[in-house]
Design a protein around this nucleic acid. Structure first.
Lengths: 342, 342
DNA sequence: TTGAAAGCGTTACCAA
DNA sequence: TTGGTAACGCTTTCAA
């Protein structure tokens, strides 16, 4: 018995059972009308032959690839990982599969990835933030599929949006620090064009402190993203040198907050007491650190779920200009030990 | 002037320039013989029309999809993220693109993902560890493309391997603790089938302590992966209750080590002094924590680079049974403050 | 419930 | 250096 070379294809299965490829195609899908007996035989034959569908061929024919392109700044970031989890879980069970890319916070990388992904004909595209190269923006606009920008409220938006104002989230924290009685407040990070969400948080900090009549000049850079613990530590050294009477510090991320805090502890400063410290993002480390760190929870997983919801809705609709939607999420302040007034 | 509907395809570009699709296909690739002038015109036309290659069609025709399927347990894990980075960077510039999936440490999820990914006809498949369902193993074996198992040394291996013995890595740490003079040593984590690398580390701990003539019964579970700080904290409570005379603890991950350590600090124990603590993985938090945490650096990024190297080599070779290769990497002990003898 | 024929958009192959 | 033709493996569409 001569076995065919190469992986089995649909016609091999069809031949073995004695039906047409169309019947096989139908039998392997749910919700199609094929007689029970035929379907059983086809399943059996497919199993025997180790048949696997060729999605590229299927997609080419049906014009539906089942890909959702998702582009995030970094994989190793609990916040974006949570968003991805939200997306994955909500998309699970649908015919959609995520094509994931990460940019390392570089909009030129983003452009490259978008270009690469477009050739895979995704049915929807999800990007992080509203800062893109001109060409990337053009590619997204012309893509002809739903585009979702998340984690921010860009103006103008390309298409769909799920996010929040990073600047306003900062306000929550500044107000908390003010209420606790802190007046000389510093800010670490958010100084680079590459991390626009960080920039917005810093802007929000400046606006909020101004509004409260506080000084807003204690700003320390923390270098290129991703934000790390190291940078928080280095920045805290600078801050302590330049403005040694600082009472509280807000950091662009919990990671730099942790680094800043350990730097204080190593210098013999008490946190809180000599220095109050706040972060952003509600990472695990903020909860378990000693002292635990006051932070902002942005609801990262929920963002992913909302994005998935939009995609499912948009793809169900047949070229109906269902219009743009902007879903605003609500960042929440989480008060912990690191900002207590002693 | 009537514009065609839908996205531009190759024939649209060809028509506009007045050449065949073959010439367009060639002109858009590098290292093909097309006259300079023609190529210029074609590039121009493609740009004007916003033409994007349809990779599905290209892959169908050429039998090369450009996909490398990569399956890791978790995205939000600095170790696997580093491996992914190594892979990405080394693959960058080649025609290969990563199709990423994560299993949440569930081999049934892994099987599903493998199945899903196979229909995309990847040119190589990378999986984490050597523990798979029977069906997954069968799918991988029959896939007809190079398969790389990484982060472990499975026996028997399916095909290619890049990894290290997690058990032996544990030995490094036990010996370090022994040399520091610790005798009553506990272990946290590595108790679940789902994390086979954790299991191996625990087994290695038991073997090594036995060999040194130490007690090896101070084992505390830490629940399902992913390993978190919370679990380290909870486990430390249990350990302190059950075996209050414990001198040192090794944890299956730096994250649980950090949780365990903060639990000690909150209980008023000195680390080191009253309790020595060691982790695994060399996460950032181990370096920045106060005290800093002794750990094992497994060279995660290097693993990714080695995997990419194998893939590039395998795909360059034309059906030559280049054979299986096993690359062993070398985990390194990193001594820090948390295990100092006071 | 089933099948035949005609694509889907690209590249391999061979010829000019 | 260029082009014609025939796939690639599947689904759509229309008919039976």
């Amino acid at each position: 018995m001569a076995t065919k070379p190469g992986p089995a294809k649909m016609s091999d299965v069809a031949e073995r059972v004695g039906v047409s490829t169309m019947t096989v195609s139908r039998a392997l899908k749910v919700g199609t009308s094929v007689s029970e007996e035929t379907r059983r035989q086809i399943r059996q034959a497919a199993d025997d032959l180790g048949y696997v569908l060729n999605s590229a061929a299927a997609g080419l024919s049906s014009q539906r690839t089942g890909f959702v392109a998702v582009i995030i700044p970094s994989v190793n970031n609990a916040n974006f990982a949570d968003t991805l989890r939200g997306l994955t879980e909500k998309l699970h069970g649908s015919r959609l599969q995520i094509l994931l890319g990460y940019t390392d916070y570089d909009i030129n990388r983003e452009e490259q990835i978008i270009e690469q992904f477009l050739s895979r004909q995704p049915e929807a595209i999800v990007v992080t933030g509203g800062s893109h190269t001109d060409r990337a923006r053009q590619l997204l606009t012309q893509a002809g599929v739903p585009v979702v920008e998340m984690w921010d409220l860009p103006t103008p938006a390309i298409d769909q949006v799920v996010g929040f104002s990073n600047a306003r989230a900062s306000t929550l924290m500044v107000e908390h620090l003010f209420q606790q009685g802190y007046r000389k407040i510093g800010f670490i990070g958010g100084d680079t064009e590459r991390d626009t969400r960080g920039l917005d948080r810093r802007r929000g900090f400046i606006t909020a402190t101004k509004k409260l009549g506080l000084q807003y000049h204690r700003l320390v850079a923390s270098g290129h993203p991703p934000v790390t613990m190291r940078e928080g530590a280095v920045a805290m050294q600078i801050l302590l040198t330049q403005w040694s009477d600082t009472e509280a510090v807000m950091c662009v991320s919990d990671l730099s907050a942790f680094g800043a805090m350990t730097e204080c502890l190593r210098s013999g400063l008490r946190v809180p007491g000599d220095m109050a410290i706040a972060g952003f993002g509600d990472y695990d480390v903020a909860e378990y650190a000693v002292p635990s760190i006051t932070t902002i929870d942005v609801g990262a997983q929920m963002i992913g779920e909302q994005v998935a919801g939009i995609i499912l809705r948009e793809l169900a609709i047949i070229d109906d200009n269902s219009g743009q939607s902007v879903i605003k999420t609500e960042p929440k302040l989480i008060v912990r030990e690191s900002t207590k007034r002693l």
